[in-house]
Structure formats: C-alpha cells, structure tokens
Design a protein around this nucleic acid. Structure first.
Length: 823
DNA sequence: GGTCCCTAGATACC
DNA sequence: ACAGGTATCTAGGGACC
C-alpha cells in the first residue's frame, strides 16, 4: 500500500515498552490519515581522546548490558555503534546507543558515567525532533508512505479503531516528495464568553465556532430572537456536548483561538469537568492536556490547537503598529476589521436584544480569529518549514527555541553531535552573571538640523559573528598564531581579549547561510511579491536578528558569553570608527546609536556621500556592509529633561517624501495621554515641515487654553500603563497600581499584563500624591488641569520649543495665574 | 509641606 | 524564564528641615 500524505500533527505512542511516532495528516483527497512509524531511540556517548580500541569494545559491551528498571517498564540497550563524529567542531569517537524507549534516555545515560566517556549527549533532544532529524519526515511537506493498512488490528493496542481517522497505516518507509507547495489547512476558530474571568469559577455562556461555510453560536441562555447561527440548549452541559460534536464533525486540522491557551480552552475543560462531561475533542477521544509552562499549552490529540496570540507575540508583533496585542487591535491592523461592540456592564441585567448583540459579538470574535489564522498562515507555514518543527511547537516557541531548533535540524551536515541544554544549576549561574558592555550611543547636540544623511550597518551583529567566526566552538582557550583577536574589553571586571579560530565553525556558517537565504528571498520577493515569499524572507530575518541575543541567553544550547561580549566589542569599535571617518571626511556627525551614524551633508552632494559610502564599504572586513538608511530634509534633537545635554534615543526626522520618523519621544510612548502625544506629534510635524516653531507655538497655546477651559474630552486624557506584576508584589504604589486596586474593588477583572487605564482628577482637600487623584474611566470627575498642564503637556513640548528659545513653562504659568485670577 | 536624592517601574532604541 | 545591553523619564519613598 502506497499513499501520498502530508503530516500535520506529530505525536508518539508507547506500545509494549517501545515508542512509536504517530503522524496525523491528510491525503491528497483530503482524508484524515494516521501513520504509525517506528523510531530507533538513541543518544550518544562521546569518548575521551585516546581511548584504545580495546577499551572502547569493553565499554560498548558494558553499555549493551545495561538495563534500567522503571515503575511502568524496563528499558534496555538494544545495540551500540561506533562513529567518527564531531562535537563542538572537534573530531571525536562516539558510541551511538540505541535503547527501547526515548523517554528513558536520561535514565540510561545516568548509568554510563564510565571514565572513558567524555560526554553524554542528545538524550535531552525531544523525541519528535530526533525523529524529524533522523528520518527526515518533515512537517507540512508531502510524503509518500509505503506500509500496511491497519484495520481492526490488534497492533498498537487497536489504535486504528480508537482513532477518528479515515485511514491508518503502519509505515515501512516514508519518502519526502520532490514537488512541494503551500498547504491550505482546514481551520476552525472558536471563542467563548463567560460570566467570570477566573478559570473554574463561572459558566460558559456561549461558544462560537467559525470555519469555511460554517458559523455557529451555541448557548443555553435566552435566544428567542431569530439568529440562524444560534443554537439553544437547555443546559451548559448540553451546549458543551454539541461543541464536542461540531469539532468532531467539522474535522479541522487546526483549532484556532485567540489567547485560548490562557483562557478559552482551560476554561472549557474546567466547566466540562464541573458538568461531568469529558471534553473529548481529541481524535482518540481524549481531552486537551496542558503542558506546564508560564502559560500552559493546550494540546489536542490529532488536532493542532493554535493560540494565535502566542505566535503573533513572538513572530509578528515587531512589525505591528498596535500598542497592544488585543484581538481587536491586531485584527483591525491586519484585517481592517474590528470586534463588535458589546457593553459588558449589561451582563447582570440582560434583555433579549442584549443577548442578540452578545451572540453576534461572540461570533465576530471567532470570525476575526478565523480570518487572522488565514492571514498569518503563510508565516506559520514558513516557520514550520524553516525550523522543521511541527506547527504546535513553532506557534508557541520563543525566538531562542527557534534558533536552537534551526541549529539542531542542521547539525547533521556538519556531522555534529548536539550540545545539551543547560541544567537548572547552570541556568542559575548564567542568569546571575555580570552584564557585559553593550553598544555605543553618541551624545547628540540639541538643535534643528537640515539636510541629514544616515548610514547603518546591515544586520550588524550577525555580520560580525559571521565575519569573525564567533561561537562557543570556535573560541580558543589561548592565543594561537593566525587566529582572530577581539578588541580589548572588560568582562567580569577584568580587561581582556578573546581569541577565535579561523577555521569556520558550524555556528557562524549556519548564520552566514541564514543571512544569504534572507537576501535571496528578499530579492525574489521584490521581483515577484507574494505572501509566502514575504513570510519566508521574514522568518530568516527574524532568525538572523535573534542569533546574537541567543549567544547571551541563559537557556541556549550554544551559549557563549565570550562570543556575545566580543560581538558587542566589535559593534562598538566599528561604530566609533565609522563616526570618526565620517567626521574626518568633513561631515558634522549629529547622531549615532549602535549600528548607525547620522550627519549633516551641508555643502556635500548626495553623489559625494554615495562615493564616500562606497569607500567606507571597501574598508570593511568579511560580510560587513554599511548602507544608506535615508536622506532627511530636517531633524530635531532635544536636551534631556534633567540636565543640559542632548538626549540619546530621542529624535524626529522628516525625509524628502515628507515621511516622519519619530523615535523615543512621548509621541511613541503608550504610557502618555493621547492629548500630549498628538500635540507633540503635531508640533514635531510642523517644525520639521516648516523649519521654524511659529505655528507650533500657536497650537500649543491653543491646547493650553482648551485644557484650562475644560474643553478636552476625557478620552484624550486617559493614561494607559501596563500592570507588569501581581498587584501585591509592587514595592512602590504608583498611579497605575492604585487604578488596578480600584478595578479589583469594583469587580472589574484585573490581571498581570493588562493595560490599566485611568485619568488624574481634581480632588477635594489637599492631596499631594498623583495616585490619590486617580480615577477609572467609568468614574465621573473633572480632570486635573494642573496635572495635565504641568505633567503631560509641558513635558511633551518643553524641550522641543526650548531648541528655539521658547520657554513654554512661562506661558503655562502665565495662563494658570490668569485662570486663578478668574475665580 | 517642601526639597533633595535615590529607587522602582514602564517603555523606548537598536 | 523563554534573545541582549543602553537610555529616558515619572512617581514614590525616605531623610531632612
């Protein structure tokens, strides 16, 4: 029996003490297929240098006799093989140890601490990853499987009769097909509405489902009004049963939610339990399980549960303008579609038409989730292709895991045995380490500048790692002749240099490939744009960007603080050198941060500037490259609020097409009120467009006037600040903490990570602390004129107008006196 | 109640 | 806990007058 299929969900099963891989996927006809594949679990014992062949034979015999008795099974070594391998770039002899069950690899490894053994490795690589690497069965790629159909077979505990699949095959061989194309998955989105926020506390009022030609709202609440997609049930339990039934009959590849790992799925499971119902949505009739972690990951057997929020958070958020990653903001940016309105305060007293609105609100959430899933599918698909890990994992992994996985899946080409993950002790040590020195930031001189050019290094950190061959494996213990020497820098309060081999290591080589592939796909994208090329180029870009941070990340397999610190030493060196060279060429340097330099062209032409850039590039080593970021018509730099020096990381530019680039200013900070932000934005735009402050001063004065006259809408005065830890853990009780406490008192759900919204009101009596004047949006009150003038408007424009010698404080103070005079 | 100095905390830049 | 370091700025917190 031969059949073509695409594996989507990866899992493993135990049968008679041995683990097998269970792949769930689709056939060309769209049938759901289960493929059971065998896998010879194994790990490595790397031998010390110089161990004799005779000794090696003895060691192998000892290892082959190992048997570990565990509670549920006994595991033993099946065979061993001797291989010439590499470990951290060095030639080693290593024994490949085959065992019955991968889960016991650690236990077996513990038994072989013989003196001839240098290191034991790869027992900590997850089974699925090992399987994908060794048997080359790639997620979301078409394969041909040859094997036997299981039909009411007793094999694997009669798995084929348990699983809700169309066909179940025991594989003899699986081959990846040459021709591949993007797969269009069958997606079902879901969303629930509840009367309590805490999981396990309240009821699920309704569940919405949205798929292709499929929309449903299931409820056990009032639904007399006709809405064709609403189905009513007598009890919560019956509603949940129907939900299970619909998931089964729709048969999705993907069940998508938004924040469903943290809310919808665990909530459903808890409520089902309360109703004594098994939430049997797995294709084997099992309930979702929750892997522990900061946010538990809800896994459904045979169906890939994706919490879109988690993928968007790591892979997408840096390209979004949205200030929060709420479904509403993300959907309106990516889909240009919003959530429906619903006033949750009505919940305690619902009329029939309120229920109707609530149902359509609920359905819309699923609809948005479904459309988002479709929209970002190319990115999820490409992440899976690039990292070669299953969908479930790549939609939850953080960037460090993506880097780890990319390396793991590409080590075979270098004949490398994988390094281990750090253990708790090592993680602790790494996290407690001293920080190393970071990048250089140029101190600007405040002022308005015209005719500006900015150069920056393309992927600076990555190109340094590649050009100087930096990594754990290429780091030398001491200086050798003909090696790479770092600039001198301080690490752990000690001045020193580090030395790296010139022989190319797999770690920088892989990064070089990533950079090359990124270039290639970016070029292809430019020639003929489509979503998949964009996603692919983006995946490589993110990988390249995360590679440097990975070196200094405590959880990394290939952690190398020396390499990370050396990368930064080179970053500082090159940035300072470029700044010096730009100065020497006769430009006035006004800006510089990490990998960039900004300067005034003055009498120099653009052509001269391009020629100069070319010359600078000819002097750069390796793959390092400097490029023109852009030319700007004008730019403004201001002083720090404390002190007369120019503020770093705060500037505004306008390019020749009239496009603004604002960095660091309150305009781009979400914890300032809308009025201050938009006023500052207007001021900056006017100054940069017009080259002087005249009309800006006018709008500032008008705004001051409007505040004083109480003409400002409270909406524009709301301050939003994130609650970054649990309320009771705050040492200093700042306004947003007070606001959060107030929310708790009013039974408004508050949780860590939420944006807390409040405004500052006038108060009776003499309260001097800001936090005593905090009011929630639902609390009636007058805004505090003094606060908004002195602490929002003034700081947002003071330093900008100061560049022109305008003292806006005097204007405000004048107005305030006038205001008092009126009373 | 005001000033000084320091820290906690949030959010930005690259 | 889930890439790194650099930087700005507000409000609170405590000492002191």
């Amino acid at each position: 029996m031969k059949i073509e299929f695409i594996p989507i969900d990866f899992n493993y099963i135990d049968f008679e003490g041995k683990s097998y891989i269970k792949l769930i996927g689709r056939t060309r006809q769209g049938k759901r297929i289960c493929v059971i594949d065998s896998y010879e679990a194994n790990f490595w014992a790397i031998l010390n240098e110089g161990v004799s062949d005779k000794k090696i034979d003895e060691v192998r015999k000892k290892i082959e006799k190992i048997e570990v008795k565990l509670v549920s099974r006994t595991t033993n070594v099946l065979k061993t093989e001797l291989h010439n391998k590499k470990f951290l770039g060095k030639d080693v002899k290593a024994i490949k140890i085959f065992i019955t069950n991968h889960k016991d690899a650690h236990a077996v490894a513990d038994e072989i601490g013989f003196e001839e053994i240098f290191k034991r490795r790869e027992y900590d690589v997850p089974l699925i990853s090992k399987y994908i690497i060794e048997k080359k069965v790639l997620p979301l790629n078409w394969h041909e499987v040859e094997g036997e159909i299981l039909n009411n077979s007793l094999e694997f505990g009669g798995i084929d009769s348990v699983l809700d699949v169309d066909i179940c095959i025991k594989a003899n061989s699986i081959k990846k097909l040459e021709k591949q194309e993007i797969y269009e998955p069958k997606i079902l989105a879901f969303d629930i509405e509840t009367n309590e926020f805490e999981i396990g506390k309240g009821n699920v009022l309704m569940i919405s489902l949205y798929g292709k030609n499929f929309k449903k709202v299931l409820t056990w609440k009032k639904c007399a009004l006709k809405q064709d997609y609403v189905e009513c049930f007598k009890t919560e339990g019956e509603m949940i049963k129907k939900f299970i039934e619909y998931v089964k009959s729709y048969g999705p590849d993907i069940l998508a939610g938004y924040f469903s790992d943290g809310f919808d799925l665990p909530y459903l499971r808890a409520v089902a339990e309360k109703n004594k119902i098994k939430l049997a949505i797995g294709i084997d009739g099992s309930q979702p399980s929750f892997a522990r972690g900061r946010i538990p990951s809800g896994k459904i057997n045979g169906i890939v549960h994706i919490d879109l929020f988690r993928f968007i958070e790591t892979a997408y958020s840096q390209y979004l303008q949205s200030e929060t990653l709420s479904l509403n903001e993300v959907a309106s940016e990516l889909l240009n579609e919003k959530k429906h309105d619903f006033d949750f305060t009505k919940l305690s007293n619902m009329k029939e038409e309120d229920w109707r609105d609530f149902f359509s609100y609920n359905l819309q959430d699923s609809a948005l989730t479904y459309k988002l899933a479709e929209k970002i599918w190319p990115d999820m698909f490409e992440f899976s292709q690039v990292m070669q890990e299953p969908l479930f994992d790549i939609t939850r992994d953080k960037m460090s895991s993506h880097v780890d996985n990319y390396i793991l899946h590409n080590l075979e080409r270098f004949n490398e045995i994988a390094e281990k993950r750090p253990l708790d002790k090592e993680i602790g040590e790494r996290r407690n380490r001293e920080k190393y020195e970071g990048a250089y930031v140029f101190q600007p001189i405040p002022g308005l500048y015209e005719n500006i050019g900015i150069f920056d290094f393309t992927s600076m950190h990555a190109s340094i790692i590649v050009s100087y061959n930096l990594s754990k494996a290429t780091l030398l213990e001491k200086k050798e002749k003909n090696c790479i020497e770092s600039p001198e820098f301080e690490l752990n309060k000690e001045k020193r240099n580090f030395y790296f081999s010139k022989e190319k290591g797999f770690f920088p080589l892989l990064l070089e490939e990533i950079v090359e592939l990124r270039k290639k796909y970016k070029k292809e994208l430019k020639e003929k744009p489509d979503a998949i090329k964009k996603a692919r180029s983006n995946a490589f870009k993110l990988l390249a960007n995360a590679y440097y941070g990975y070196l200094g990340f405590f959880g990394a397999r290939y952690y190398s603080i020396e390499s990370a610190a050396t990368t930064l030493a080179f970053v500082r060196k090159f940035n300072k050198e470029i700044i010096e060279k730009v100065k020497q060429e006769g430009y006035e340097v006004i800006f510089g941060d990490t990998d960039s330099v900004g300067f005034v062209l003055d009498k120099k032409t653009k052509q001269q500037t391009f020629d100069f850039l070319k010359k600078l590039n000819s002097e750069l080593p390796g793959i390092m490259e400097l490029e023109l970021e852009d030319f700007y018509k004008r730019g403004i730099w201001v002083t720090k609020r404390s002190g007369e020096f120019g503020a770093k990381k705060k500037y505004a530019l306008i390019n020749e097409q009239g496009k603004l680039k604002i960095r660091g200013f309150e305009t781009v900070r979400r914890d300032w009120c809308g009025l201050a932000r938009s006023l500052q934005n207007d001021v900056l735009r006017k100054i940069l467009n017009e080259g002087n402050e005249k009309s800006s001063v006018k709008i500032v004065k008008e705004t001051i006037e409007r505040i004083k006259e109480r003409k400002i809408d409270l909406k524009e005065l709301m301050i939003r600040t994130q609650l970054k830890k649990p309320i009771n853990e705050y040492l200093s009780i700042s306004p947003h903490v007070v606001a959060a406490k107030k929310m708790e008192e009013q039974n408004i759900p508050v949780s860590q990570g939420m944006l807390i919204e409040y405004y500052i009101s006038e108060t009776n009596g003499k309260k001097s602390l800001v936090r005593d004047k905090v009011k929630l949006p639902n609390e009636k009150g007058l805004y505090n004129i003094e606060y908004y003038l002195d602490r929002q408007i003034l700081p947002s424009v003071e330093n900008i107008l100061d560049v022109f010698g305008i003292k806006i404080k005097e204007i405000i103070d004048g107005k305030k006196q006038m205001n008092l005079g009126e009373f």
